[in-house]
């Protein structure tokens, strides 16, 4: 039985499936390809498509954030590390065949569970969402970014601050972990210079007397 679809719905469906296809294909490739540089680039594509889907659902701020953070920062970080580490493309030699029965057993159990959920549970996802939709707004809705900001800086202020702190900690952690003093680079150490000098000497100064 066909339901008449509006052109908007038709377009929306096409766009969704196009992006969904890209996401799934790229994600799979990220996992499968051998060259890590390719994997990073494919991951960028997957995130890009996801951002598009976010925007389609009205989450413009998050969609753009995803592009800026992931495509702009994290992906670059990945690429940077991948290239810095000079990772050789290693071929795995170990046989995986002996693990196949176990993998099949777990996979079939998972499949059976999913089938059971789909076949036995008649409640659709929409019904699960509390339907009498949000209480009538007391004020006209603003755009997505503003609404999000109002929420973050009121109800979730503490959590938001903690998230910021977490990012700061991550930055410090990364620096502490990767920082090292290098012997082949000239640096000035004032304390060492002072200690090396022959003229300087330690004088025991009597308390309250001065030199």
């Amino acid at each position: 039985m066909l339901v008449a679809l509006s052109p908007f719905q038709l377009t929306e469906g096409l766009v969704f499936f196009a992006f969904a296809f890209v996401i799934v294909a790229c994600a799979l490739s990220v996992v499968v390809v051998r060259n890590p540089v390719h994997a990073v680039l494919l991951m960028v594509a997957a995130f890009f498509s996801s951002a598009a889907l976010f925007i389609m659902q009205g989450a413009e701020f998050l969609g753009l954030l995803l592009i800026i953070v992931y495509v702009g920062a994290i992906a670059v970080l990945f690429l940077f590390v991948v290239m810095m580490l000079d990772i050789r493309i290693v071929a795995t030699t170990k046989s995986r065949r002996k693990h196949v029965p176990l993998a099949l057993a777990v996979a079939s159990l998972l499949l059976a569970e999913l089938a059971a959920v789909v076949l036995l549970d008649t409640t659709s996802a929409e019904q699960m969402v509390a339907k009498p939709s949000p209480p009538a707004p007391t004020r006209p809705l603003l755009d997505n970014t503003t609404e999000l900001g109002l929420l973050i800086y009121s109800d979730y202020l503490v959590v938001f601050e903690i998230a910021g702190l977490l990012l700061l900690l991550a930055m410090l952690g990364a620096i502490v972990l990767t920082h090292r003093t290098r012997d082949d680079v000239a640096r000035q150490s004032i304390a060492e210079q002072k200690a090396r000098s022959e003229k300087a000497r330690l004088v025991k100064v009597a308390s309250k007397d001065g030199v």
């Binding site: 998050l62 994290i74 998230a163 991550a170 990364a174 990767t178």
Partner: peptide, 29 residues
């Protein structure tokens, strides 16, 4: 559901993921 709270949590996930990947890559290096 028309409730923005979900998006707030997506934001936090984003922050957590960024922190995680930073530390992860640092350890890797």
């Amino acid at each position: 559901s028309g409730d923005l709270t979900g998006q707030v949590f997506a934001l936090f996930i984003l922050a957590t993921a960024a922190a995680e990947v930073t530390i992860g890559l640092a350890i890797l290096v």
